[in-house]
Simulated assay, not measured.
Amino acid sequence: MKAICLSENLVSGLAIISRVTGRNTILPILNNVLIEASNGKLILSSTNLEMAVVTKIGANVKNSGKLTVPARLMYEFVSLNKDNNISLELDGTKFNLISEKNNASLNTLSVNDFPPIPGSEDGLKIKLDKNEFFSALEKVVFACAIDETRPVLTGVYLKIIHNQLTLVGTDSYRLAEITLTDIGVDDEVEILIPATTVLELVKIFTKDDSKIELNISSNQIEINDPKTTIISKLISGNFPEYKEIIPSSFKTDITIEKKELIDSLKLAQSFSRDNSGNVVFKIKDKNLTIIARSDQFGENISKVNTEINGEDVRITFNVKFILELLDKINCQKITLLLNGPSSPVKIGSSEINNFIYIVMPLKVEEKEE
């Protein structure tokens, strides 16, 4: 194999595939990138057996061929190399990287040991606006469970029905749901995409106004743009029937400026670290007070400007669950809808279409002021 390419293009490609390689001591081949040169391009592939990434870059290919070398080491060399062009040449079991001022020789492993990259399967194909789809994923994936006790909660639930695509993430303490409408598909499908895959998707693919293609089959999802393909296994199991926990009516509604709420919650967070992150929202006489107490440090009380309708209520939240939401949504005002101290709370914004966030309050004994 022999080829020449722009260093910046090679850096971009290696940065993408390196996201799924790591220090695998059991299967060292999984730390490698598979490089194939042919037809004026380099095809770079990597896999961790759960997810595979393939990306293409342009190159002047003089001799076709393929090889596999350590991905991170190659990425570090190329990214730190300031020369514009780099020549790639396989010499026996050595892969030589040659530029104007810097040369390197990397040891290869057998291509035959590299796990096969899954091919495309016949499935439901959908084209979506890339920016809209990845923005929607970011609004739900943070709510997925990290604990693998219930594997179905460690993934993003994707459901297509009636020309709509709904995405849901939950860890049983909070739930985020967003729906994309008019997707141009009347088929019905339900899958669970691992949250680890989703987190990589939103980092690997650039948000822009182009289209992304999904190919959904029974056991994998394939995501494509013109340069990059990601193929991931799906999670087996049934997602919980979550609709029944979403209240349909409320006794209290609060509208708050997002920035003011963030500022108040960050103050409260400093005083709640040794109290499991508990903060109290006290709604009384059309006023909102946020209270946080620490046995070690003291207490913080913040009054927040709000528009309040309905009954007085005193309710306790994990401050992390509110702040993580506010970090993911772009709006000026937030609305909280409540039904009392122990009922699920619905949070959203009129500025974001078809998005809801449900958070369960905490049951704790609090002293009344």
Rank of each mutant, 00 (worst) to 15 (best):
M1V: 15
A3E: 06
E8I: 15
S12Q: 12
I17A: 02
R19E: 07
V20T: 10
V20C: 03
R23N: 01
N24R: 01
T25H: 02
L27F: 09
L30D: 04
N32I: 03
V33H: 00
A37H: 04
S45P: 05
S46E: 01
A59C: 08
N63P: 06
T68K: 02
P70R: 00
M74E: 00
Y75P: 00
S79A: 08
K82N: 12
K82D: 14
D83S: 12
N85E: 10
S87W: 00
L88Q: 03
E89G: 05
D91C: 11
I98S: 05
K101S: 14
N102R: 13
A104S: 14
S105W: 00
N107T: 12
V111F: 06
G119L: 07
E121S: 11
G123I: 10
L124S: 06
K130E: 03
K130W: 03
K130N: 05
N131Y: 05
N131L: 04
E132Q: 09
S135E: 01
A136E: 01
V140W: 00
E148P: 11
P151H: 14
L153I: 12
L153S: 10
H162E: 15
E177K: 14
T179V: 10
G184H: 04
A195E: 06
T196C: 00
T196M: 06
L199V: 07
E200S: 06
E200Q: 09
V202C: 00
V202F: 00
I204D: 01
F205S: 06
T206N: 12
D208R: 06
I212T: 08
I212W: 01
I212M: 03
E213W: 01
L214A: 02
N215V: 09
I216A: 01
I216E: 01
S217D: 09
I221G: 05
I223T: 08
I230S: 03
K233F: 07
S236T: 13
E241T: 11
Y242K: 12
E244I: 09
S249H: 14
S249C: 07
S249F: 13
T252R: 04
I256E: 04
K258H: 10
L261E: 11
L265R: 06
A268C: 13
Q269G: 07
S270D: 09
S270R: 12
S272Y: 05
R273A: 11
D274E: 08
N275L: 11
S294P: 00
S294I: 03
F297T: 02
E299P: 03
E299A: 08
E299Y: 06
E299T: 01
T306G: 02
I308W: 02
V313Q: 07
R314S: 14
N318M: 07
V319E: 05
K320E: 14
L323K: 12
L323S: 13
L326T: 14
N330I: 10
C331D: 11
I334Y: 07
T335R: 14
L337K: 15
G340K: 05
S342D: 13
S342E: 13
V345M: 04
V345W: 02
G348D: 13
I358Y: 03
K363L: 11
E366S: 13
